[in-house]
């Protein structure tokens, strides 16, 4: 117990807790939209292509998250544009951006002189090393997400459910689609430090799958997803600390255990 209190007093651990809260809110909200619209693999494409930006930042020596945002947003708009305007099949355009980003990342990292020490923490995440600046960025993202979902909730929901109906009603569907995909890109990138590029998809889908066991109402799904994301990140954080294993992977593991346990419980009760 005293060890726990001591732990909570550490600056790095307080930051990690805040990161868990912020990540849960943004991933809970954005993830619900992603899962509902069935654009999980678009999100996967965006995530992986952001690696190109991280590589570029290593090479030129600027903040990797800036590079990641740049590549993520670019690929998000690119996928959307390829699919809706250029007439390329959606899964193919995802694959193009996904692999382009990863390939550029590998080339840039290879060209970077010397050893690139943080590379693993971008790929697999490390919630214990999140910096103050990154926390501010995550807070801003959360405020932005909350504001947009507060003011445009109905439009976002209606477009997601029946795009054609919204279009017929004169809603600027394309504008909202680009806005949402940009928000997804930002959410993905700013949470990379928590679970990493490879694992971020899980934070956007597993809490939603768990929440989906209890509700099929978009609003409640969002709230419950935030809750389950928080439960998973928090427990993962503690488990990883006390067992001294990587935090990103542990968080994914606890998220899945929560899902599995509740799904099993539900199955047995029937």
């Amino acid at each position: 117990m005293s060890e726990l209190i001591e732990l909570l007093g550490y600056d790095f651990f307080q930051k990690a807790l805040l990161a868990a809260v912020f990540a849960s809110i943004s991933c809970g909200i954005a993830g619900t939209y992603i899962v509902s619209r069935r654009i999980v693999f678009i999100s996967g494409g965006i995530t992986h292509s952001s690696f190109g930006g991280i590589g570029l930042a290593f090479l030129l020596g600027f903040n990797p998250l800036v590079g990641a945002v740049l590549f993520a947003v670019l690929s998000a708009l690119g996928i959307q544009f390829f699919t809706s305007q250029a007439g390329i099949r959606e899964d193919s355009s995802i694959a193009i951006w996904w692999s382009l980003g990863m390939a550029l990342g590998v080339i840039f990292v290879f060209m970077t002189p010397g050893y690139t020490p943080n590379l693993m923490s971008y790929l697999f995440g490390n919630i214990l090393t999140v910096s103050r600046g990154e926390l501010w960025a995550m807070l801003l993202l959360n405020l932005l997400l909350l504001a947009i979902f507060y003011f445009f909730f109905r439009k976002i929901l209606y477009i997601a459910f029946d795009e054609e109906f919204a279009r017929a009603a004169g809603i600027r569907v394309n504008f909202f689609n680009y806005l949402m995909i940009t928000l997804i890109a930002l959410t993905v990138v700013l949470n990379i430090r928590v679970v990493g590029i490879i694992l971020i998809l899980s934070l956007l889908t597993i809490p939603q799958a768990t929440a989906n066991l209890f509700t099929r109402d978009f609003r409640k799904l969002m709230l419950l997803s935030v809750f389950f994301a928080f439960a998973g990140t928090l427990s993962g954080l503690f488990v990883s600390y006390f067992l001294n294993i990587p935090s990103g992977a542990t968080i994914i593991f606890t998220l899945i255990i929560i899902f599995g346990a509740l799904r099993g419980f539900q199955f047995l009760r029937r």
């Binding site: 619900t32 109905r154 929901l157 459910f161 054609e164 017929a168 978009f218 799904l221």
Partner: peptide, 27 residues
């Protein structure tokens, strides 16, 4: 008022009946 072919809609979408009806207000 528009009632599209329901086969094109995602039946697993997490939305309640009341919300679907209220979306008609867009028109």
């Amino acid at each position: 008022g528009y009632l599209p072919q329901v086969k094109h809609l995602d039946k697993k979408f997490p939305i309640t009946v009341t919300d679907v009806v209220r979306s008609g207000a867009l028109m």
